[in-house]
Write a protein that binds this DNA or RNA. Structure first.
Lengths: 230, 230
DNA sequence: CAAGCTTATGACAAAACTGTGACAGCCGAT
DNA sequence: ATCGGCTGTCACAGTTTTGTCATAAGCTTG
């Protein structure tokens, strides 16, 4: 649960306070007072999480966030925005820009640590190069091979990435939008319904090995790869 | 903005003072002079906020706070600690324990009401993604699964949100209007009676696992999810 | 016990979602 | 240039979910 966190905040008071609280929570904290400094530190140390103040001298928080999202290496670093209270517009902008969450000041330490925990947990299982196996269906990212109980399964590139993602994040519901982000890439302009179609193609491809109901439809929410047979 | 506040404080002088100030702010105030009494009152009336003096005869403030956090029903009640001036150690302990904020004595009425306002303001969005379990009925927001004593329960999207909300706010009566706000969203135009129908559907869905009377009807007031079997 | 309210139910029709099959555009291989 | 594999979109069909009603029940009060 301990993580390396970069705090980007120019007000010394708040910086100290947050730093103190994070340290209490067992996290390693680095601080940056400016956007420029922040970019360098992120690129350099690749922290587990960035706490980003909305208002910064020079570059604004949103621009900074965009910068992160544009860089391949920093793209996946979770960002929590610290915004002044109740500015709905900022909130929306922030989330659109790619912040993972936001907290409005003033915030309680408890809230802060709760959000941090949530974000870190959400990011938890990274897609690795390791083989995954669930319910007899195994997928090997390296050889790019999928077999259901021994017999090979034919998949297209997108289907493969989709299955890979879902197998590395089982028992978790993902909305179509989230799946688009994770499997297609954040920037693409694709209809959400496209996900449905690919899910179906995936199911069809899995049918020969009886794994067609590996992926559940969660009405009104999205899809979920379940570890337990229905 | 008016709220029900429980003040836990043994010094009569301070108690009176704070009580007066809170009343001025339009809040309903209850008082407890001892930790034991406080536990009972919180469990009983579920205040919107607890002002907790650090130094109490008998159980210390920190123990009391822990007790609150451990109980499902009281888990979400915000706590503001009242500490003697400048005791850093207490401050740390208090925040670790789960206090939402702390105020060092002596404090001005203005500071007090400012803190209260801040805490109450952020009380609302507390939908976490933690699993909830009550009376053998468990709900997991992440996997979007609900099981009653092991066997799965089928719920529609609205029923799911409704149950989630009520399980995270047990032992508390919510009017139809409040439920509409929290579960449907503030802006929607829906008849209040609609809530009745969804409560019924929820009860029907829970019937197979014998959890149909998890939700009590409070005549003239609304509904309540009870932790105690009838 | 009857009147006056407040809830519980069963039935519906509209609205919202998903599952499907078909299609046209791309692109690399032939 | 042609063929075949992938993809992103649609339009349509099949279901599920939802908001309301009208009506039956259930409580409270006098």
């Amino acid at each position: 649960m301990a993580a390396t966190i970069l705090l980007v905040e120019d007000e010394p008071g708040i910086q100290e306070l947050v730093k103190f609280n994070l340290a209490q929570g067992g996290h390693a904290v680095m601080c940056a007072d400016s956007a420029e400094q922040a970019v360098g530190m992120v690129r350099d140390t690749l922290p587990d999480l960035v706490l980003l103040d909305w208002m910064l001298p020079g570059m604004s928080g949103i621009e900074l966030a965009k910068k992160f999202r544009a860089d391949t290496r920093m793209k996946h670093v979770p960002i929590i925005m610290l915004t002044a209270r109740g500015d709905e517009r900022d909130k929306v902008l922030g989330l659109e820009t790619g912040a993972d969450d936001y907290i409005t000041k003033p915030f309680s330490p408890r809230e802060l640590s709760a959000r941090i925990k949530a974000v870190l947990r959400r990011r938890a299982p990274q897609m690795t190069e390791d083989k995954v196996e669930i319910r007899g269906l195994s997928l090997d990212p390296v050889s790019h091979r999928v077999t259901g109980d021994g017999t090979p399964v034919e998949l297209g590139p997108t289907e493969f990435r989709l299955l890979h993602f879902m197998m590395t994040h089982p028992e978790r519901v993902y909305s179509r939008a989230q799946l688009l982000d994770h499997v297609w890439g954040d920037h693409v302009f694709v209809e959400e319904r496209t996900v449905d179609v690919h899910i179906r193609r995936l199911r069809l491809a899995l049918e020969p090995t009886r794994h067609e109901n590996l992926i559940d439809t969660v009405r009104g929410a999205g899809y979920r790869l379940s570890t337990q047979p229905a």
